[in-house]
Write a protein that binds this DNA or RNA. Structure first.
Length: 450
RNA sequence: GCCCCUAUCGUCUAUCGGCUAGGACACCAGAUUCUCAAUCUGGGAAGCCGGGUUCGAUUCCCGGUGGGGGCGCCA
């Protein structure tokens, strides 16, 4: 294991932002690429902020994306605890140290009331040596110049973000701070804090922000800003991870689809873009489609099953049958949430039929029922219930009737599935099985007559 | 207002100063098919503007403009 230590330090807001998820991903990738350590720390500055459910949202999101942390909550480590709400003594100690060194002082705010602790901030420009942006020299701006010192402990005794962030990074021996560019302007404050505490600052890498399609910072209220939206909508975590990987980072080649392993091997900080990137839902959707087709069948079943269970389609269904059903529909649904719609006819005989498909196929065309009767005869006599046999057994009567196979295929599809669209008909018939198919063919006239 | 980052097709991006500017998504047109998809082929589509540096700038420098972010007893 190398000496690299990175961290993801989200605040439990009950919500994992895609931008945060990508920050976590980049940290994870850098840790894995360098053989370093990925630390998770929860920035719940005080107990009132610590909501168990909100913390769980973060864990679920990270795990869903496959970003397992090496140190942190539920994992432990030598630098714990990993909840800021449990590190008050550590902050108090460092604040005390700053006061003793005369780098900070108590201040009574007459206007707002109460006593705070303020940090003596330099008025000199500070240069941030950033691994992505280069050397960024920042002088205090107008507002800061008026009162360079900033609050590090609020009047209620709770230390603020700048302080706890720096203290924790020191205590947790973080070597590389990889975070959103929105923190770049505040970094000089952090560097000043490191200096005052007599610690060499870590390396900084500020990554570009994710913008919404309109071009401003993706905010909580934007559609698709929360990771759980993708989880609930039935995206494959692989697809979301792949998409996020390419938002602001490039493998410097033409490949679009990368496995996590390939990404880990190629990932490095210099290939990170310097400009912000818009979130392109269309491209994510395309990528999702790619994974929906290419996922290994076992993985596809693993991801699809929860959605079937939620739709109440799984009770009493043999494991093997479920797998066969999922295997033939793979590639049709674009989202796992759509899987129940595509598979209900395999699990229930009272599946809903698409009225449009029924009308188009049978309304005013009673001859199609007659064709199904012919097909029923052929299939009833079929010895081997496999898709090649089913295929051949359909083409035979079609030929003798002098019609195109399609003229039999379409009515048959609607009769057995209630839909005009679906996977290869013969594979469907094969999986549905002899009894079900014959029963549906026999019952078609009654069920679909106009 | 001040400070910081940034700038290639609509979007994500490639280009170690030599470009007929490449790829992907989306879009359009064909091909293919048992439906829907998928797939295949082809097409349109970009270097923000102005100065430098250079034999030569999309690439380097400066300025402007555009976009984003920051300046809390939020994180």
């Amino acid at each position: 294991m190398s000496s690299v230590r990175v961290r993801f330090a989200p605040s439990p807001t009950g919500f994992l932002h895609v931008g945060g998820a990508r920050t976590a991903l980049f940290n994870y990738l850098y840790a894995r690429h360098t053989g370093g350590t990925f630390v998770l720390r929860i920035e719940d500055t005080d107990e009132t902020r610590h909501v168990e459910e909100a913390v769980q949202v973060i864990f679920d999101g990270l795990r869903w994306l496959g970003l397992d942390w090496d140190e942190g909550p539920e994992k432990g480590g030598a630098c714990g605890p990993y909840f800021q709400s449990q590190r008050k003594d550590i902050y108090r100690r460092h604040v005390q140290e700053l006061i003793e060194r005369n780098a900070a002082y108590e201040f009574e705010d007459k206007e707002k009331g109460g006593t705070v602790v303020k940090f003596r901030m330099t008025r000199e420009p500070i240069t941030v040596p950033d691994l992505i942006c280069g050397n960024v020299t920042r002088a205090p701006n107008e507002t800061e110049m008026a009162d360079p010192d900033f609050v590090i402990v609020r009047s209620d005794g709770v230390p603020v973000f700048h302080l706890v962030n720096v203290v924790d990074d020191i205590e947790m021996k973080i070597t590389h701070v990889i975070r959103g560019e929105d923190h770049l302007s505040n970094t000089p404050k952090h560097i000043a804090l490191y200096r005052a505490l007599g610690v060499e600052p870590p390396k900084f890498a500020h990554i570009p922000l994710i913008l919404n399609p309109t071009g401003s910072k993706m905010s909580k209220s934007d559609k698709g800003a929360a990771l759980h939206e993708y989880m609930n909508a039935g995206y494959a975590p692989e697809a979301v991870r792949n998409f996020l990987t390419l938002l602001g980072w490039s493998p410097k080649s033409d490949v679009e689809l990368l496995t996590l392993e390939e990404t880990v091997a190629k990932f490095d900080l210099p290939q990170i873009q310097r400009h912000n990137a818009r979130f392109d839902h269309e491209k994510l959707h395309w990528m999702q489609g790619q994974y929906m087709m290419k996922l290994a069948p076992e993985r596809y079943a693993e991801l699809g099953r929860p959605f079937l269970a939620k739709a109440g389609l799984l009770e009493g269904q043999p494991e093997d049958y479920v797998r066969r059903v999922l295997a033939i529909v793979q590639g049709k649904p674009k989202l796992f949430s759509e899987v129940p719609d595509w598979t209900t006819c395999f699990f229930r005989d009272d599946f809903a039929a698409d009225p449009e498909a029924v009308t188009k196929t049978f309304a005013g065309q009673p001859g199609n029922f007659d064709l199904l009767d012919k097909l029923l005869v052929a299939y009833a006599a079929l010895g081997e219930w496999t898709h090649p046999a089913l295929d051949a057994a359909l083409r035979e009567p079609a030929k003798s009737l002098g019609i195109k196979p399609a003229a039999l295929i379409h009515p048959c599809r609607v009769a057995v599935s209630g839909k005009a669209i679906g996977p290869s008909l013969f594979r469907m018939l094969e999986v549905l099985g002899h009894d079900r198919v014959l029963a549906r063919l026999a019952g078609a006239r009654e069920r679909f007559k106009s």
